[in-house]
Design a protein around this nucleic acid. Structure first.
Lengths: 98, 98
DNA sequence: AGGCTGTGTAAGCAATGTCTTACACAGACT
DNA sequence: AGTCTGTGTAAGACATTGCTTACACAGCCT
């Protein structure tokens, strides 16, 4: 979970995830979506995401295709839900005490 | 969202959130739960959490009581759900193509 | 008033993270 | 074989983070 949450804490990486969310995308295409940043910078972000299990990588000849791997967020989602459920429980209690 | 996700990326801060999850807790009590760390370090983490809107602070005489504020995670939860839904949609499509 | 108790803040330092440029290397094309 | 295209990796500069110790200050108690 630690790797995933640390990876997701960066806005560029979140943007990349949104990009590859709807299907595979190759490194170069992803990089051109961030004109303000050099290509190696994007490549490093992709590595962080891959190491955290948030994206899958597949080689296709010359290129590398990246795709979202939502399961990587499972633990993070679990944490948030655990926090969230507190609110729901409190809400429930508040309603019951009405 | 950025502040919340950055705050949540730290394991100590997540532990603090779990601690104050079930009710208010004062700064000192929280700090004693982290014997490996100095009290000011914990105080700084609490500030980060408060600034990110993940905890509420309330003064009670001398002490400061912290409590979880789950709404602070709303945007983060939204992001995760947006990623997550991709998987669900794909799963659905896979089932339909069976 | 004076001295605890509880907490936040300031300054400084070591570790980490995020870029950039330069380079390496595999796969496609001629 | 030679070269181009696509992409990762290495090294280093710079900013940010997470700690520590020392200090500041408000609120209670006598």
């Amino acid at each position: 979970m630690d790797d995933a949450l640390r990876a997701v804490a960066d806005p560029t990486r979140r943007a990349i995830m949104e990009l590859v969310r709807d299907g595979e995308c190759c490194a170069g295409d992803i990089a051109t979506r961030f004109p303000a940043m050099s290509r190696p910078a994007v490549s490093q972000h992709l590595k962080v995401l891959a190491d955290a299990g948030l994206v899958d990588v597949r080689r296709d000849g010359n290129r590398r295709l990246y795709a979202l791997r939502p399961e990587g967020l499972a633990d993070a989602a679990g944490f948030i839900e655990r926090m969230w459920s507190t609110q729901l429980r409190r809400l429930k209690e508040a309603v019951e005490n009405e």
